[in-house]
Design a protein around this nucleic acid. Sequence first.
RNA 1: GCCGCGUUGGUCAAGGGGUUAAGACGCUUCCCUUUCACGGAAGAGUCACGGGUUCGAUUCCCGUACGUGGUACCA
Length: 520
Amino acid sequence: MYTKSYTLSLHAMSKVRVRFAPSPTGGLHLGGVRTVLYNYLFAKQHSEGKFIVRVEDTDQSRFVVGAEEYIFECLQWCGIRADESVLAGGEYAPYRQSERKNIYKEYAEKLIENNQAYYAFDTTQEIEEMRERRKAEGSGSLQYDAGIRLKMNNSLRLLPEETKALLDAGTPYVIRIKVNPNETVAFTDLIRGDIEFETTNVDDKVLLKADGMPTYHLAVVVDDYLMKISHAFRGEEWLPSAPVHILLWQYLFGINNMPKWAHLPLILKPEGNGKLSKRDGDRLGFPVYAMDWKDPTTGEITKGFKELGFLPEAFLNMLAMLGWNPGNEQEIFSIEELIQSFDINRVHKAGAKFDFEKAKWFNHEWIKKLPVQHYSSIVKQIFAEKKLEITDDIYFEKVLELVKERCTLLTDFYEQAVYFFIAPKHIDVDSIKPKWTDLKKEFFEKYITKLQADSTFTTVTVESIFKELATEMAIKPGDLQLPMRIMLVGGKYGPGVFEIAATIGLQQTVQRIEKALSLL
RNA sequence: GCCGCGUUGGUCAAGGGGUUAAGACGCUUCCCUUUCACGGAAGAGUCACGGGUUCGAUUCCCGUACGUGGUACCA
């Protein structure tokens, strides 16, 4: 077991600090992005000091190469830009936990000097045996705490010279916090209000591990102090360990210097129970990562919101509303509007189930709302991936404008717009055939001739010629519009037929009608 | 097991002693459009349960249930 943690300094702006871990296999989870987002909004509002994002993970072998860069990319895609890279240093460098190892050790030893922590030499096996024994006794608590510590192998029970001998012999040890029982630890959470814990229920957590690395508990307190953190936002899963951190602040730096805490509600699975995980996304067919994540060890790719066709504006908007609301009916927010309206006090206490349908709705709204120029280059790339190269940007954007309200994801543009660039491969003639007549055939033949005689070829003329001819031949224009649509686009969808005809031009219109006529 | 946090329609949620209990997503129906979508109108659907406190509880208090998190030399 080995632990390594990373801290990335992201933004030289606020004293608010967010800490989060990527998924155990890498990837930036929805919950992580939301934590960063709330932090960012809050920081922007207060704009004081530094904005630091701390990324941590255990087990070095699993902590993946490239995860730091990946996280930067995700945040940049979201529009949360890094002012300094992880390697650039900054006021409070270094940030990687492995590079701060000595700092933590110093504080751990200071705690021992003050009799607020102690050396423990128990092996994993001994601790397990202790738990088994207590379980057998029917004890409600299985903790390593005041009730049991004097029966264990630690510097509290051992004589000073015994401890020294063990230390000198190089016996592996950990440093544990000494929690005094029968006291109350209280603090105020920005979201939950006053919270109290009985110290009797808090165990003597390991602060410094046998390999000399700190646990999260020590690191978070020491770093927050040293980096002058004023507010700490983190997931609700941290709430149970908050008393350890409060105690550490009391012991080390004084409770008055402690940052303000905000424990954010969890994002839960849409169905069933539990925290949303990567597996749920795979199983239910939606992403849980901001961007595609490729596991460097297995090569497995996990789909991200970006690649699925989400706009960063929509992604952030959706995430912001999952656990927070402004108290009025507004739901669509730009990042600037979020900075204006966000209020940590209005964050919900309860966990929220993730709803992919609603997420898509946000994307749909943003596609409609934004000018196509805003995302045309992304769509262009999507087209390129499907082997459709765009050469005329003006035409391209005109087409996007025409179909944008039919697209929920950016990837939908392809299906909704291909026929503006290439004649449909498959024409749904089966929908025309049942009501097809020679008279209709004659109509289209005459229509082509008339179109070719017209020099303007605008939506208006294409339509008026169509209707005049229909009236002349005593056919209801409505009976002809659907066939015409299918001839031009291949199926029953798309914007107005005459608009499509005018857009693709005379030559294409004629060609497609002729092609379809030959199939009927 | 023990400890913490939570609970308003299927989902996100407003409201916080007296309300016809907002709104959004999704669903259904209709209108618009002789396509699809957009847009518009309507509809179904809710205060977890049991006790208090109160003239009156969805709202306050206590229990219970349920959910969720923690209970690691993971974060």
